[in-house]
Write a protein that binds this DNA or RNA. Structure first.
Lengths: 286, 286
DNA sequence: TTAAACCTTATAGCAATTACAAAGTCAATA
DNA sequence: TATTGACTTTGTAATTGCTATAAGGTTTAA
């Protein structure tokens, strides 16, 4: 095929290996793969066909996710043990990355679903009965009532959740689906009090603790836009329940489905779903 | 918590958001997030607690795998449709990356397994009967007999496989486990002829075509070190079969289990496993 | 001989930080 | 009030694995 098997120019070497000339020059400079011959007058690099073996090894190692320094170290070391060690490390590395990606993918799907829901959402403050599946949440008790302070305070609580969150090694992408939880006793008393900020996590998410399960079942829900309308919407829900003879079966969740990028640079603008598990009381036959 | 909610210094802003000051300065420069106030005399940046919302959004988008330019575009555009489009794209992106990682992980596991096998390998040229599971290979017919030319030619064949390979969009990491296949008729005639180079692929690998299935069953195997010993080892296998009353049931595979990084800079140095499916002929009762 | 195709070096760019230096500012204490 | 220590500013450079460009020299074939 080639006239001289051991006198391959950089362009040819690049072509037969599906790599760029610049990359070969870089490898030369890094002493990862140096041409078998260099014309001292012209500086032209000439490779030997057998050097492709080395290139294959480099590309294989790259495919395993190793960086050039690691590859060099490994090739220089000529140590198979070291190579197998690196293989193990790379495997762990990959597994970690794959898990993160898995969560990121789930988060994206969740967001897409939320937008779909947003687009087909009912009018604000309409009360709807919905069946909702079991979910898992990560709770963070701020010990401070979200409703008794302004937005500024709420921001600080979120910052603190973010940190707490990092401590628990939860993936950042879950931060898109936050909310707060108003425990049953407060909701029933129509007392606006919620001290816990929550984060929805996937069913297959593994974590040490702090994870709580929210039961599946029938929920009465309202949707609302913006933080300012949350309290109003909550009260509508409370009133609806007492007027329509429902029994509250658990905690009320205020879930942020979407946070809009930034129509207003200085304020959160969100689409909420308020939800409380209920059961219809049996009507007394008079 | 902070004395002034709307007069946060860059250090504090960085701390409460788990981000570095430099990063905040970069975001300022890029107009991704600009401080709400800048002291014109000192140049000090002051942030508003509400700007954390924007930062959350940026970090969330980053977690989804978007780059800063995309994020800026999205925030500037203030277009939700665009954002959902990007979500879809990112999802596809992630899926592609995850698949690649999945293959890379399998390749690593395969390599680890090969090294383990290498370490506990029997003596060279010992013939062993082994049960081998079903496998899948990608075949590439070079139309040239591997055994009739030297190593130089073999390298060129590999280069050509590599290209053919890229055409089929097979992941590079599979390149670690190559081999050649000597069809049954040649092996039986004890004629050293193999024109096809092969690549082992995982069971779950999806590809257009060129994939062949190798049956599970009992194989007679020899292990050998280095290309120079391959032919000798093949002949030993052939002789063993005729001497011990075995019947060849399929093609003979010469599999490279390991390519050693590079003890010798200019030559491949590999650990081979030669394997041929067999059945013991029934002994005639005299 | 002349042009096309190739090679050389050197420099800069990408993306998203991180690290550093030199100098100016702020807030609290001695 | 001065001084200290913690902070801020700007600017520059490093990181990784390439890719791109420019300005110039070499090979090869017509």
């Amino acid at each position: 095929m080639e006239k001289a098997m051991d006198h391959i120019t950089i362009g040819t070497m690049a072509k037969i290996n599906g790599i760029s000339e610049q990359t070969l020059r870089l490898y030369d400079k890094m002493r990862l793969l140096q041409p078998s011959e260099i014309n001292t007058e012209t500086g032209y690099r000439y490779y030997n066909i057998k050097q492709c073996a080395q290139l294959d090894m480099i590309q294989y190692m790259k495919a395993l996710g190793m960086n050039l320094v690691q590859i060099k170290e490994c090739l220089d070391g000529k140590d198979i043990r070291r190579f197998t060690q690196i293989l193990y490390l790379q495997k762990q590395n990959l597994e970690k990355q794959m898990l993160e990606m898995h969560y990121a993918k789930q988060a994206i799907e969740r967001s897409i679903e939320s937008y779909r829901r947003y687009e087909s959402a009912p009018e604000e403050n309409t009360v709807i009965l919905e069946y909702i599946h079991q979910r898992r949440i990560f709770c963070y008790d701020t010990k401070i009532n979200c409703y008794s302070y302004g937005m500024d305070y709420y921001e600080h609580i979120l910052r603190s959740l973010k940190k707490n969150y990092a401590l628990h090694h939860l993936p950042m992408c879950y931060f898109c689906n936050v909310g707060s939880i108003m425990r049953k006793e407060f909701f029933q008393k129509k007392e606006l009090c919620a001290t816990e900020v929550i984060l929805f996590v996937e069913d297959d998410f593994q974590s040490e603790d702090g994870i709580e399960v929210i039961r599946e079942g029938m929920y009465l829900c309202t949707y609302c836009y913006g933080f300012n309308n949350e309290e109003k919407s909550l009260k509508i829900l409370m009133d609806f329940i007492s007027e329509h003879n429902y029994e509250v079966k658990g905690d009320c969740i205020s879930e942020i489905l979407i946070e809009f990028p930034t129509f207003n640079n200085y304020d959160r603008n969100a689409f909420f779903k308020l939800q409380v598990p209920v059961k219809q009381k049996k009507k007394k036959i008079i």
